[in-house]
Design a protein around this nucleic acid. Structure first.
Length: 432
RNA sequence: GCCGGGGUCGCCUAGUGGUAUGGCGGCAGCCUGCUAAGCUGUUUAGCUAGAAAUGGCUUCUGCGAGUUCGAUUCUCGCCCCCGGCGCCA
């Protein structure tokens, strides 16, 4: 279990963060449960001390061949006292546990305070939208026979799709292009499990607020005598991003300082229920239940966090510039920054069909939020410190396809292949 | 899925119903003139006292439950690893 020491030591910051995020997290409830827990725990430990001492005396007496009957019955009384506390303490532990895993991350000082969209801060605008408006990607792709959402709606439901023909090759080209680029920069490609146990999922994202966004694919096994909290191993969730299995990968590990940073390029499908987004972005493949993504992920020493955040962001900018997509960087405000993140910069790209910039990915620092919950540390001289974890989209394939198509469609309805992808496609134009 | 073996500190390893062994590595210190070695201490997590230096205590043998005054040891369930068999893309 994650401990509350961190909370007590960072109380002022946490209070401020909760206020700035507009969070309803019941901090005082957590603190009072924690206070009560520590009181009982201290009491219990004093009894354990008594028991240990007495047990030794029993042991010594037994060795000398003395009668231990009386000593044993005295100890039985002590046992009753301990049992009372043993049933009391877990109540508070469960309470603390249910709260502390979901406590929001402390925001980075750079994060603007306020609510979206006004308080989000546009940091940079790069590239000129060549076309201000145009057909949306669904129209373009359906006309070419490369996208079929109707049949997917029939077989799997809304927000699913069949990609066909050259669009599949273009999708794979994008992913491979991103993998190759990151691989050359020293990021290790990783194809992770597409499912994660609840035990680890709750360490990478606050399940209390996040669980509705995930597909749960197996029910907990019924095991007699087991309480809910104890069969966490048996519940699996489909991953909503490769970030999650990448962050869990090194759970419960201790790095030597020289091992860090670790840089990964994860490739996987992402599954999202998109609960609560009814009616939003229903056209085409912009917002779907399943998409493919190459994700950048870094474990680093705490003091290197900023450096690698900048590196991750620079990688994304390089990719967008090579794909020649107009984009802007947006620093998310306190009200828009994800629960487990301390800072997030979205990159939003120009969609002529929508006449607007839309998110293609986001670069985030989780600070030590994930590593504290997953127990990921490194040796720093004679101290063990929690590693910082950072993540950033490299290519979110379906969304990027949508964006590319709208920017690269020609008057005749065919699609020009971006130059960097031509070697992967083996052709420079898609005509359906 | 079945049968067998296993899981002990960062790594390796001993042990057995009564204070968890030793080594390596790491860290701190000491000694020493030669590319190093040696010696000593330390090494999970937490509660607590103190301004601090530093103490006291609990906890840690994969996870959880049971038996017991006491479980690393005995019993049961679960997870994982290794070997064999079966099934299978």
């Amino acid at each position: 279990m994650i401990n509350t020491k961190y909370v007590r030591e960072h109380l002022a910051e946490i209070r401020e963060t909760l206020k700035n995020r507009g969070s309803s997290f019941p901090l005082d409830e957590l603190l009072s449960a924690d206070e009560k827990w520590r009181k009982l725990k201290t009491e219990y430990q004093a009894l354990q001390f008594k028991r240990n001492k007495a047990s030794l005396e029993v042991s010594a007496a037994k060795k000398k061949g003395q009668d231990i009957k009386e000593m044993v019955s005295a100890l039985a009384q002590l046992k009753d006292q301990m049992e009372g506390l043993e049933s009391e303490i877990p109540k508070y532990e469960e309470k603390i546990d249910s709260l502390v895993w979901n406590i929001p991350n402390v925001l980075d000082k750079a994060v603007p305070i306020g609510t979206p969209p006004e308080a989000n801060k546009i940091l940079k605008i790069k590239g000129d939208p060549k076309r201000k408006s145009g057909p949306n990607h669904e129209e373009i792709l359906t006309k070419l026979g490369l996208l079929d959402v109707e049949r997917a709606a029939k077989t799997a439901g809304s927000r699913f799709y069949y990609l066909r023909g050259d669009l599949v090759l273009l999708e794979q080209s994008l992913l491979r292009y991103a993998l190759d680029k990151l691989s050359k920069k020293g990021y290790t490609p990783v194809l992770p499990p597409f499912m994660l146990r609840k035990k680890y999922y709750r360490g990478v994202a606050p399940l209390g607020v996040f669980e509705d966004a995930l597909y749960r694919i197996s029910e907990a096994k019924e095991v007699s005598g087991m309480k809910d909290a104890e069969h966490l191993d048996d519940e699996l969730f489909l991953i909503s991003t490769a970030e999650h299995p990448l962050a869990s990968m090194h759970a419960e590990e201790l790095f030597s300082g020289a091992d860090l940073p670790l840089k990964y390029a994860g490739i996987s499908p992402s599954f999202r229920r998109e609960a609560g987004s009814h009616g939003k972005d229903t056209k085409g493949i912009f917002r779907v239940h399943q998409f493919d993504k190459v994700e950048q992920f870094i474990y680093c020493r705490q003091e290197d966090e900023k450096k690698y955040f900048d590196e991750l962001l620079a990688n994304s900018e390089e990719i967008l510039q090579e794909l020649d997509i107009p984009y802007r960087l947006v620093l998310l405000c306190s009200g828009d920054t994800g629960h487990q993140m301390s800072k997030t910069i979205d990159f939003e790209c120009w969609f002529p069909g929508q006449g607007d910039y839309r998110e293609l990915g986001s670069c985030s620092s989780a600070g030590t939020w994930q590593s504290m919950r997953l127990d990921i540390k490194y040796d720093d001289k004679n101290e063990r410190r929690y590693a910082s974890t950072l993540n950033n989209t490299a290519i979110s394939a379906q969304r990027t396809l949508a964006c590319l198509v709208e920017n690269y469609v020609s008057k005749d309805g065919s699609i020009e292949v971006p130059e960097v992808l031509v070697p992967y496609m083996g052709k420079s134009r898609i005509t359906g």
